[in-house]
């Protein structure tokens, strides 16, 4: 059963990779990378059950957090052009540069 799950995840990883390679728009590629990160989390979780090392689950959780924060920062940079502004009209507002990465 774990084998089937791993094969399914590998196929999904291939599809996400294809979308990241072809993706006509920026957002296709961002979604593909986000999905690829999620698939990595799932793969690590299944590997941890397969090899009976459930302490790997913590690593999978940290991957999920890194993936989320990274994608949010990338989206913010794509939309606003910097990491510190919260509105397009007021790009010079300085706040919390360090919190985003």
């Amino acid at each position: 059963m774990f084998t089937a799950a791993i094969l399914a995840i590998l196929v999904t990883m291939g599809l996400a990779l294809a979308r990241a390679l072809m993706g006509p728009t920026v957002y296709d590629r961002i979604a593909a990378v986000n999905m690829f990160g999620t698939k990595t989390v799932l793969l690590i979780a299944i590997i941890s059950f397969l090899s009976d090392r459930t302490d790997l689950l913590d690593i999978a959780l940290v991957y999920a957090l890194i993936n989320f924060i990274g994608i949010v920062a990338v989206l913010k940079l794509v939309v606003y052009g910097n990491l510190y502004s919260s509105e397009k009209e007021n790009p010079k507002q300085l706040n919390a540069t360090g919190n985003d990465n």
Partner: peptide
Amino acid sequence: FAIIMLFGI
């Protein structure tokens, strides 16, 4: 931009 996304992958 696509290259950077591929770096992430």
